Computed example of a mutant assay.
Amino acid sequence: MKLKFTKMHGAGNDFVVIDAINQHINFTPAQWRFIADRRFGIGADQILVVERPVQPDVDFRYRIYNADGGEVEQCGNGSRAFVQFVIEKGLTDKTSIRVETMSGIIEPRLEADGKITVNMGAPVLEPSRVPFLSESLTASHQGDDSLWPLEINGKQAWISAVSMGNPHAVQVVASVDDYPVQVDGPLIENHPRFPKRVNAGFMQILDRRHIRLRVFERGAGETLACGTGACAAAVTGIHRGLLDSPVRVSMRGGELSIAWKGEGHPVFLSGPAVTVFEGEINLSEIQ
């Protein structure tokens, strides 16, 4: 079968976006992996699928598949690409939409300057709901945040566990350039304290409104940007009393802006979404 697709990115976090409203989609994990493969397929960190909504009072359903073929709950940069896609394709004439995801409803909107802002909902800070297994651990406290000791590669890292619809472990490092992200990232991702695996964030604080960030994403490896990772890092820094909202987040693929008023309030993610090219791919031989 031939599949029509659009290649997009948000700050270098790249996606294959598929219209499943006007074409039939029923793929195997092997086919998702083939699409995401950078040598044999199209290449992407995540694959985004646009569907008709299941719930009432919602405009679309949004599904996300990582490069390893697994479906995941949320993708902040992808949500911005999603909005750009449905507007460009004429699937909606709204500039603000309600979108159903595996982790709940998000409300992205297209701003007058062309950037897209997404209401990502309130962060989850209770360890058991991230989920993070904190039993038998003693937390250290900084500001209003709890830091948890995690044994990684023979050393102890202090992480904040937070969910933005998907799980994140965020730690402050002296330099994101010097930190061994490629070594520690997969160890944190697959740490037994995180039963659903986790996105590992490494945050360098430049000043109270500016950070640098690298994220080793669950099921995708290190990406050039991570929207939910940027949200989780900003929330962590504000909760610890180290940052003030809004926070400018510089990643290897570009910059995002995160605003958060504190516990109980939603996180707002703003940044660009870019269409790169469109095409068709033949999946007939991939089972």
Rank of each mutant, 00 (worst) to 15 (best):
N153P: 05
W32D: 08
A67Y: 02
E126S: 07
H24Q: 14
M1Q: 06
S160N: 10
E263I: 05
G229F: 04
E255C: 14
S79P: 09
V247W: 09
I21Y: 08
I159Q: 08
Q46I: 01
A139M: 03
M1R: 05
K7H: 00
S284I: 13
G143H: 04
T6M: 15
I105S: 04
F5L: 05
S163K: 01
S79C: 06
S257V: 12
T138N: 14
I97N: 10
R33W: 00
E126N: 06
G41M: 08
D244R: 12
L243E: 07
T138K: 12
F5K: 12
D244L: 12
E151V: 03
A44W: 02
N119D: 15
L242Q: 13
R193F: 11
P246W: 05
G241D: 12
I97F: 04
E107D: 14
D184Y: 03
P186Q: 05
E189D: 09
E189G: 08
I211D: 11
L242S: 11
P195G: 15
K115R: 15
L243W: 02
I97E: 07
W260F: 05
S175V: 07
F132K: 00
V54W: 06
T236S: 15
E71P: 03
A220S: 15
N26S: 13
L213Y: 04
V124Q: 11
M164L: 00
E255R: 04
Q23R: 00
D244N: 13
A157W: 10
S140C: 09
A30K: 08
N119C: 07
H239K: 15
V130C: 09
I35H: 03
T95Q: 13
K4E: 13
E278N: 14
F194P: 03
P29H: 04
F5I: 05
H210S: 14
L137H: 12
G262W: 01
V274S: 12
A112D: 11
R209T: 15
A200C: 13
E285Q: 15
L150M: 09
G104V: 06
R39V: 01
M164A: 03
P131Y: 10
I238C: 10
V99L: 06
S146I: 00
P127L: 01
V86L: 00
I211Y: 08
Q182M: 12
G201S: 08
I281K: 15
F82N: 10
P53R: 01
N66F: 00
K261Q: 15
N13Q: 09
V249F: 04
T275K: 12
D145M: 11
G165Y: 01
V50K: 07
